[in-house]
């Protein structure tokens, strides 16, 4: 069995974002990067399936971006992926979801992946398109927003998360692609021996130009912080004072403390 997991490296969402000089994305400077949270669940599920299938199975992790994304690939290797693919692209933020999906599909085409895992969306761009579009381009069955995954006898039984806590149970035959939702599993922390082992694993470098054949279908026109709606009171200072202030505000403006 061959498995592919696609991951994106994103900034820590607690960061303060600054607009870059071309005004179309954030500036990379001063940001700490990590694996997109949704993709960590994808990696964990892929590694669990790899363990279930044993050594006849090969699990590849793929990421697109500048050299820094190798850190994300290395973490996925330390979690248990067998080999890495770094699609080198310093202008990844200028590509739209259609181009990103077409790059991944161009890499995956003809390689016989039985299952492809992605996160359901990225935390920074949040289009929730790339995984599904890859499946369409490859002609694979696809289900999104998984909170449950079981594999047996050439088919995936998946639980999709719907609104209000309801779930939809579906079955799809391989080759298939699934997109992973938060809470699907508990992503493991790489152990020190596995981090050391990961250093010896291969990371194949592929220039993006060799895979990109599509023009963008959309472009970013502008990027900016949302206008503050205002109205709310902002309080800072000593916690004891803040407590008194909040209690008097609540007494004045709500009926809950009377």
């Amino acid at each position: 069995m061959k498995i592919l997991v696609c991951i994106k490296q994103v900034p820590d969402m607690e960061s303060r974002f600054k607009v870059n000089s071309s005004g179309d994305w954030y500036s990379d400077a001063d940001l700490a990067f990590r694996i997109n949270e949704y993709d960590e669940y994808a990696v964990e599920q892929a590694v669990q399936l790899r363990e279930q299938q044993g050594d006849s199975c090969e699990l590849t992790v793929l990421s697109i971006g500048p050299d820094r994304v190798q850190e994300a690939i290395k973490k996925a290797l330390a979690m248990g992926c067998d080999r890495g693919v770094h699609i080198q692209d310093n202008d990844v933020h200028k590509k739209d979801p259609w181009q990103i999906a077409s790059i991944i599909a161009a890499y995956a085409k003809g390689k016989g992946y039985d299952l492809i895992f992605t996160g359901m969306q990225s935390q920074d761009r949040g289009s929730a398109q790339v995984g599904v579009t890859v499946a369409e381009l490859l002609g694979h069955a696809c289900a999104t927003t998984l909170v449950g995954f079981e594999y047996a006898d050439g088919a995936v039984k998946a639980k999709r998360e719907l609104e209000g806590g309801v779930k939809g149970v579906v079955r799809l035959k391989i080759p298939a692609l699934v997109t992973c939702q938060l809470g699907l599993n508990i992503p493991r922390y790489p152990t020190l021996p596995n981090i050391m082992k990961a250093k010896k694993k291969e990371i194949e470098a592929v220039p993006v130009a060799s895979l990109l054949g599509e023009q963008p279908l959309s472009v970013t026109a502008s990027f900016y912080p949302p206008a503050k709606k205002g109205g709310g009171i902002v309080l800072e200072g000593d916690v004891a004072d803040l407590s008194d202030k909040l209690i008097s505000i609540l007494k004045e403006k709500t009926a809950v403390l009377r």
Partner: peptide, 11 residues
């Protein structure tokens, strides 16, 4: 964008 901390306009 970025967990609702930023906005983006798309053409």
């Amino acid at each position: 964008s970025c967990n609702a901390k930023m906005r983006r306009t798309v053409k």
